[in-house]
């Protein structure tokens, strides 16, 4: 029986790998920030005359109107951002979700041209030129989207672009869940 041992060990390894593959859809590392207040930041507006954004704005009911918001890290040079843009437009225009766009390591001019071309889903656009805020938020790459509730608590992190069925199956249910809490 001993001679079968390597084979048996290998078969159990395969089992482990199948688990590893099946969990593929949730392969993103769960953010340690979930359930915690947004890290402090203060970003300047992307456009002269626009609004800046600070972490205090996120927990301020006068700004958010008591509703959750999405924070979207994007850049004009990022191709997946282009791909998810349509879904962000749907969220903003059809579902009435407030989205704050943080332009990550990008020239303001390029970010604005990007939004001119594809439409602007953002209520506020701010710039994180050095990527410092992105680091504090634990962003591993653009695009990344965070769901922040009306009290400024980070509730969900969407890793990668919101494309395909990930709006319907992943991001939207999370938003709905947070929306539902506030109704009673």
């Amino acid at each position: 029986m001993r001679r079968f041992l390597p084979f048996i060990i290998f078969v159990s390894l395969i089992g482990l790998f199948i688990f590893g593959l099946s969990r593929q859809n949730s392969v993103e590392v769960r953010s340690v920030l979930i359930g915690k207040p947004a890290p402090s930041f203060a970003l300047l507006p992307l456009q002269a005359g626009g609004h800046g954004l600070t972490n205090a704005d996120l927990s301020n009911h006068d700004v958010s109107g008591g509703k959750p918001v999405l924070i979207n890290f994007f850049a004009s040079w990022c191709v997946p951002c282009r791909a998810e843009h349509e879904n962000l437009m749907i969220l903003a225009r059809e579902k009435g979700i407030v989205i704050y766009g943080i332009s990550y390591r990008d020239r303001p001019r390029d970010s604005l041209a990007f939004l001119d071309e594809l439409g602007n889903p953002f209520t506020r656009m701010v710039i994180d030129g050095q990527g410092r805020t992105a680091i504090d938020w634990g962003v591993s790459g653009v695009p990344e989207t965070f769901l922040v509730d009306a009290d400024g608590i980070i509730r969900y992190r969407h890793w990668g672009p919101v494309v395909g069925d990930s709006l319907e199956k992943r991001l939207w249910p999370e938003i709905e869940a947070v929306l539902a809490e506030k109704r009673p």
Partner: peptide, 30 residues
């Protein structure tokens, strides 16, 4: 860049090559 389809293919290949050879080993070890 990862892709589940690729993962499944490699896993099947791995199972065939490694699993097959370890089984052969077990049968021929005596």
């Amino acid at each position: 860049a990862t892709d589940p389809a690729r993962g499944i293919f490699i896993l099947a290949f791995l199972g065939l090559v490694i699993g097959g050879s370890l089984l052969l080993f077990a049968l021929r070890a005596p």
